[in-house]
Amino acid sequence: TEEQKKLYLPKLTSGEWTGTMCLTEPHCGTDLGLLRTRAEPVAGAPEGTYKLTGNKIFISAGEHDFTENIVHLVLGRLPDAPKGSKGISLFVVPKYQVNADGSLGERNPIYCTGLEHKMGIHGNATAQISIDGAIGTLVGQPHKGLAAMFVMMNAARLGVGNQSLGLTEVAFQNALAYAKDRIQMRSLSGTKAKDKEADPIIVHPDVRKMLLTAKAYAEGARALQIYCTLLLDKAHS
């Protein structure tokens, strides 16, 4: 709504506040049709105001004190929601309530209950989140939350793909440097490093095969990224 945009977008886009996407729950990974977080209308509150209860896991930047507020976008179910993924709605649930004038109000009961450890992500906390009657407002249409969330999810997936390519390339470069430096045994086709006690392991066929496989993954992924970027340019222009 225009009111939601006015309340949240200025400070989200300026970086004064940060945001999250709260999808996954302990009992369901990518099968969001099993989602249990519930949203109940708040009596006497403006239309579209709900009290949310549930648990989320793997929430990137789910809790921190870098910014004054964190704006959580949470998937949940309304009381009359149909079963499965067609019964999921989207809600904006701030860490601190936002007053009409943009100032911060009460702390919402949405807390970090533990930290996950994920490869490659060390710049933010990947948090387990407990939502215990936190007040939020509906974003978009009831039961259409998954489609709304995937507007962001698809963009995030492209970004994560790029991160993965970076990790793959760095892993290959480090492995290549190690294989040139580490010495062990002699080459099957005769001594290669006559000045050393053994040959560098890059001379061994199986090591070369593993390095070439890693190189192929990195170069293939780079080609795919460039192709995706071309498609994005075409789509936008």
Rank of each mutant, 00 (worst) to 15 (best):
Q4I: 11
Y8P: 02
T13Y: 13
M21N: 02
T24W: 01
E25D: 01
E25A: 01
E25S: 00
H27G: 02
G29E: 13
L32G: 05
V42I: 10
A43M: 04
A45Q: 10
P46G: 06
P46F: 11
P46N: 02
P46T: 04
E47Y: 08
T49Y: 01
L52D: 02
G54T: 00
N55I: 08
K56C: 01
I57T: 06
S60M: 07
G62M: 01
E63S: 14
D65S: 14
F66M: 09
T67S: 10
E68N: 11
N69R: 05
I70N: 00
L75Y: 05
P79D: 09
S85G: 09
K86W: 03
L90E: 13
L90F: 01
V92Y: 00
P94T: 02
P94A: 05
K95L: 15
Y96K: 10
Q97I: 00
N99E: 14
N99Y: 01
E106W: 03
P109Y: 05
K118Y: 09
H122N: 13
N124V: 06
A127Y: 03
I129C: 02
G133I: 03
A134W: 04
I135D: 02
T137H: 13
G140I: 06
Q141E: 15
L146E: 04
A147C: 00
F150I: 02
R157M: 11
L158N: 12
V160K: 07
Q163C: 03
L165Q: 14
Q173H: 08
N174H: 12
A179G: 07
K180Q: 15
K180V: 01
K180C: 06
I183D: 08
M185N: 13
K192P: 01
A193R: 07
K194L: 10
A198L: 02
A198H: 15
A198M: 10
V203R: 08
H204F: 05
D206L: 11
R208I: 05
M210T: 11
L211A: 05
T213Q: 13
K215D: 11
A216Q: 15
Y217M: 02
E219W: 08
E219S: 10
A221F: 07
Q225M: 14
L230M: 12
L231E: 15
K234S: 10
K234F: 07
A235P: 04
